[in-house]
Simulated scan of single mutants.
Amino acid sequence: MIRLFILVIITFELSAQEYVPAKYASSGSQGIADSGIYTLAGNPAGVSRINRPQLALGYQQHFLGTDIQSQALFFAMPIKAQGGLGLLIENYGIPEVTSLIKSGFTFSKYFGKQINASLSINYHQYHVESYTTSKSWSADLGFQYLFEKVQLGAVFKNISGSTFSNEIPEAIDQEIAFGALYYLSDEIQVLAELSNDFDSSIKYSAGLAYKIHKQIILRGGASSLPVEFHAGAGILVKKFIVDVASSFHTQLGSSPQLAIAYEF
């Protein structure tokens, strides 16, 4: 009965459940202005300047006590004198009940020392066990501009305005988002973002990352729509980076997650 109740709830707002990796969820952001493998889930222009191939896995338990989960696989590799390629596969839903799968391939290119741009082609599949399956395609554009201490980013998701069939009540996100990352010092980063999905008010978020040790980073932040608080940490262990995070919804509780990345 509880699974059916949860399914009814998420049916009305499944489109808002794109996976946000632990590195960014811990500060309330999507990584719109950041760089690295996890930007494949936020603004893929951020993989333009990676130096080595990277692989990452992520898992999130949505609202402790429910069966709602997210899993994600990331892969990114540099292209010499060009930029980077990326692959993202993510799944959101209730095991053996429903799933929303998104697979995306990204080509990201840099122009000089300051501009990054990306194009992502995504495949979407929504499935409800013993009921229905629907499929669709979409495209995303991402941009970044780099200053000495400030990075700016913008992304337009689902520029094609793609949808599932009329029989499916869920939508595919069509969102525009802007972000800024400011290096206050070698140890402290400040992040701020705003986004709009054209169906609701503008969402705001802000966060802070503090490197307390060369191998440990602490993060925290807050976001609106709905109001949530965020906290987490990143730990570097040889070639592995482990990120843990949790978001705290004022009514539904916490959603912990874990991500592990490896640089070849």
Score class of each variant (00 low, 15 high):
V47R: 00
V47C: 05
S48Q: 06
R49L: 00
N51V: 09
N51C: 11
Q54P: 09
Q61C: 01
F63P: 01
T66Y: 04
T66L: 02
T66G: 07
T66D: 06
Q69Y: 09
S70R: 01
S70K: 00
Q71D: 08
Q71I: 06
A72C: 05
L73F: 14
F74I: 00
F74M: 05
A76Q: 04
A76E: 06
P78S: 05
P78H: 03
P78K: 00
I79K: 09
A81N: 12
L85P: 05
G86Q: 03
G86L: 05
L87K: 02
L88Y: 03
L88F: 04
E90L: 01
N91W: 02
G93L: 00
I94G: 03
E96M: 02
V97G: 08
V97E: 12
T98I: 01
L100N: 10
L100V: 01
I101D: 11
S103E: 01
G104I: 00
G104N: 04
T106R: 02
T106W: 04
S108M: 07
F111Y: 15
F111N: 11
G112E: 06
G112P: 13
G112I: 02
Q114E: 13
I115N: 14
I115D: 14
N116H: 11
S118D: 09
N122A: 08
N122S: 09
Y123H: 04
Q125F: 01
H127S: 15
H127K: 15
H127W: 15
E129A: 07
E129W: 15
E129P: 10
S130Q: 13
Y131Q: 08
Y131F: 15
T132E: 12
T133G: 05
T133N: 06
T133L: 09
S134N: 14
S136W: 06
W137Y: 15
S138D: 15
S138A: 09
S138G: 12
L141S: 05
L141C: 03
F143E: 11
F143L: 13
F143A: 11
Y145P: 03
Y145M: 07
L146Q: 15
L146A: 15
F147W: 13
E148S: 15
E148W: 11
K149R: 14
K149C: 14
L152D: 13
L152P: 12
G153Y: 03
G153P: 01
G153A: 00
A154W: 08
A154K: 02
V155G: 03
V155W: 03
F156N: 15
N158R: 04
N158M: 09
S160F: 10
G161L: 08
G161I: 02
T163R: 13
T163H: 14
T163N: 13
F164K: 05
N166Q: 14
N166H: 13
E167N: 14
E167P: 14
E167R: 12
A171G: 13
I172T: 07
I172M: 04
Q174F: 03
E175V: 10
I176A: 12
A177K: 03
F178A: 07
G179I: 04
L181W: 02
Y183E: 10
L184T: 02
D186M: 07
D186Q: 14
I188A: 09
Q189P: 08
V190A: 10
V190N: 06
